[in-house]
Design a protein around this nucleic acid. Structure first.
Lengths: 247, 247
DNA sequence: CCATCGCTTCGGCCTTCGTCGAAGCATCCG
DNA sequence: CGGATGCTTCGACGAAGGCCGAAGCGATGG
């Protein structure tokens, strides 16, 4: 019935990601935007023809999809599942003894705020998640998360489109372990809705040619206190000092 | 602060799993039991010295841990995180077009019921999960799962040790996409507790030298109807015909 | 104490696969 | 229609790494 997930197929998938050039390609696409083959070649630091071969393999494996537009061909991740796989594998990197810490300076922007396929990650997202949890909107744990009744009402008043999740009782939300913060951020449908809302309200703007997000002043203000001022909330406020945006 | 999860470390981790011999080793350890280097060499179908090299790399990366006992050295997965990574990667195998379906005969036992590090998988586990969801004990979705109040009370009466999960409000439970069934089974703390309970009550017994589990008659009976007869449940019974155990 | 067993290290063979140069198509523009 | 751009295919080179034979080391057991 289903293709057997044997060790050899596991190895095939893993070795596909296990090449530095392909890992660079996948990481570049984790930003969520579709990129052309040439741009991916630049990100992977290899020639165009080498990149072409890698892209063919990735498409063949179903990790990415490519659409042809004119003389360009744009690629994006095949879906949230793939992004999740990559994030999970990212988190596995710090399983071993923390030996090398090549903290580059250009990584600071990524640590602060970045897009993670369809949701946000980095300090900004982690702080937001912890604030929402402190306010009793969501429950987060290492096994997943869920939206409380209070949270459902709040997100509804905020205007978030949670889609079919609203129909389910106690809709869970995926919470990823942030690899740069080792704390949780919110993914899944809620994470995607939060990202869309934040982008629509210009709380964050995408930085060109990068996964990094720039947190605007409006975003800082909205999240630091105004996020909850825009709707009436009768929730307990156990941590009124707001969150750090570290701008 | 934290080791940077760059594309190169992603590739390093992935390529570690991307070798067939190492993938075999990891899959063998996914059964949950510690295995000696010799047994792992047998599973990986390579010589002892080659296996030794692979094990050193896996230990070095923090994916597995080894303890010395006499002249044997036993290895096990470093933790649930690793098992989760492997399961996630397993699920990625069916992303591409389903082309090869080498459904071996010996896989049938694994498809029926198997251990997955600390919880159960296969048809038995999937049916059990769906039954629990139909009874309103848990809520499952592609973004995670959560235990309902009804479920908390039920599992408590059943005698499951959910540990610290009981302290949390709406404790979530991890639900994995079963690679052999493409449906959900229950993992996380609840999954581990269910497995321990099922093993303690002799509903399932481990098959030697394999991840496979044999579902006993007692287990079939208990799950088919007696599981809910042993405790008083005032829940709606939308699907009273029970589950298939396909023994 | 010697034989056996289990695991590890060392050295060298060999396959695999990532890489780029050159050439071949497809597309767009002037 | 010709030149430029973007992507792909082909072929050969070369480094990386998995593999095993041989030998070494520690533990067990008679």
């Amino acid at each position: 019935m289903t293709s057997l997930a044997s060790p050899v197929t596991l190895a095939a998938t893993a070795s596909l990601i296990g090449d530095v050039a392909r890992a660079n390609i996948l990481c570049a696409l984790t930003g969520g935007r579709a990129l052309s083959a040439g741009e991916l070649a630049f990100h992977a630091c290899v020639s165009a023809q080498t990149t072409s071969g890698h892209l063919a393999k990735l498409v063949d494996a179903g990790l990415i999809v490519g659409i042809k537009q004119g003389r360009h061909r744009y690629f994006r991740l095949a879906g949230p599942r793939v992004a999740e796989i990559l994030e999970t594998l990212m988190g596995a990197a710090d399983l071993g003894p923390a030996r090398h810490r090549p903290v580059g300076p250009r990584d600071e922007a990524l640590r602060r705020a970045r897009s993670c396929y369809d949701h946000m990650a980095g300090r900004f997202a982690v702080d937001l998640a912890e604030l929402l949890e402190a306010r009793g909107m969501v429950v987060l744990s290492d096994e997943g998360g869920s939206i409380t009744d209070l949270g459902m009402a709040f997100f509804d008043r905020l205007g978030l489109a949670l889609g079919e999740a609203a129909g389910r009782r106690r809709p869970p939300c995926r919470c990823c372990l942030d690899w740069s913060e080792r704390r949780y951020h919110i993914g899944g449908r809620l994470g995607a809705a939060l990202f869309a809302h934040a982008e629509g309200e210009a709380w964050v703007v995408r930085v060109k040619e990068s996964r990094a997000l720039r947190v605007t002043r409006k975003g800082e203000e909205a999240v630091a206190g105004g996020l909850f001022a825009c709707v009436a909330v009768d929730a307990p406020v156990p941590r009124p000092e707001g969150i750090r945006t570290s701008a």
